[in-house]
């Protein structure tokens, strides 16, 4: 009687110990060779090390895999290395940006930042605890909130048109919204200047800034809201109509409540889109230094104009203030972004 041997389940896609040793070896060898190359050749600096390592690794990896498994496997390995490197290159700036902002911005952080404005302080003051961001934060909140009040209804109506009514304008409107999202922010600012400031009001106010920001927000809100509304199952709409509801009642009582969290995501993404928008705000709000509550009258400072002015002043202290302003702005954007992610729960495709 022969015994039947039950084969152990295999995982052929997993790296065998030998392959792991091979990969580690290639990495190590190319690292050593890179150091050697930098030492003997005129290459130097971080770029020299990274460049030498990348080139040597790709070559060795290609050669080894080709020797073991043939030509097409070698090419495959080469591009696997290249593609993995691309993600490193794409992510590097984010890390660099966040470190730069934190390292350069934290010096200016102090408690009175949120309780004082720049009315009695100069951007160039060596004492970084003089003056603060109160006016800029209040201004940013007011200006973005006003823009939101204008753009949210328009954005959501556009999305409802594209998903619920589906009239003959659906495709053109989709196209227009897409084109609108590419309107340069400075053009939005110029448009408000040409259409509102020069012919009508003749002075700067934050409301005009809000109008320009609303133009930039509408496409973001409309497109996100459209995506969300498309996810609502058609059954829900049909059951609403089958129960005798008119289309208005169906949309108002069934579709919109079902999409609520998604619509909040759209709102937050819209806010995040314009919170740091600088060019139109610099053109239109005047960028005041005092706390200003009236959105219809007089210059109002916002975070972007604060950063802009501080950067423009050009001394060490003022640039330090600019970084602190950026740090606060970045934290706000990060919080908004995290909130949108959390609420939206967007699935990674």
């Amino acid at each position: 009687m022969s015994t039947i041997s039950i084969p152990k389940p295999q995982k052929p896609w997993k790296a065998t110990p030998r392959q792991r040793v091979e990969t580690g070896g290639i990495l190590l060898v190319s690292l050593l060779l890179a150091i050697l190359l930098v030492a003997v050749s005129p290459l130097k600096g971080k770029l020299g090390y990274v460049g030498a390592f990348v080139v040597i690794y790709l070559i060795i990896d290609y050669a080894v895999v080709r020797f073991n498994h043939g030509k097409s496997a070698g090419v495959d390995a080469f591009f696997r290395g290249l593609v993995t490197m691309a993600i490193g290159v794409a992510v590097l700036p984010i890390i660099s940006i966040i470190t730069a902002v934190v390292v350069r911005g934290y010096k200016g952080l102090h408690l009175s930042l949120f309780t004082t404005d720049m009315q009695n302080a100069a951007f160039t003051d060596e004492n970084l605890s003089a003056g603060g961001l109160k006016h800029a934060i209040i201004g940013s909140i007011l200006i973005v909130a006003t823009a939101l009040v204008i753009s949210l209804p328009i954005g959501i109506l556009t999305a409802i048109y594209m998903t619920e009514i589906r009239g003959r304008f659906t495709r053109p409107i989709k196209f227009l919204v897409q084109s609108m999202s590419g309107v340069p922010s400075i053009v939005a600012g110029l448009f408000i200047l040409a259409a509102v400031v020069y012919p009508l009001t003749k002075f700067y106010s934050s409301f005009e800034g809000s109008l320009a920001l609303a133009i930039l927000m509408i496409p973001t809100i409309a497109r996100t809201a459209e995506e969300v509304l498309l996810l609502i199952p058609q059954d829900l709409r049909e059951s609403g109509v089958a129960l005798g509801g008119t289309q208005w009642r169906t949309v108002q009582q069934i579709v919109l409540p079902a999409a609520r969290s998604g619509l909040v995501t759209a709102l937050i993404l819209g806010v995040a889109r314009v919170a740091g928008e600088t060019a139109p705000v610099v053109l239109l709000t005047g960028g005041g230094d005092g706390t200003q509550w009236n959105i219809f009258k007089g210059p109002m400072g916002t975070l972007p104009t604060y950063i802009w002015k501080a950067f423009g002043s050009g001394t060490e202290a003022s640039i330090s203030r600019a970084w602190t302003g950026i740090l606060v702005l970045l934290v706000i954007v990060l919080v908004l972004f995290g909130l949108a992610r959390f609420l939206g729960g967007r699935k990674v495709k």
């Binding site: 730069a100 740091g276 972007p304 600019a322 972004f337």
Partner: peptide, 13 residues
């Protein structure tokens, strides 16, 4: 997240 960074941040950086 990189797409959400404001442009003035890219400018200063």
């Amino acid at each position: 997240l990189m797409a959400a960074f404001p442009s003035i941040l890219y400018g200063l950086w």
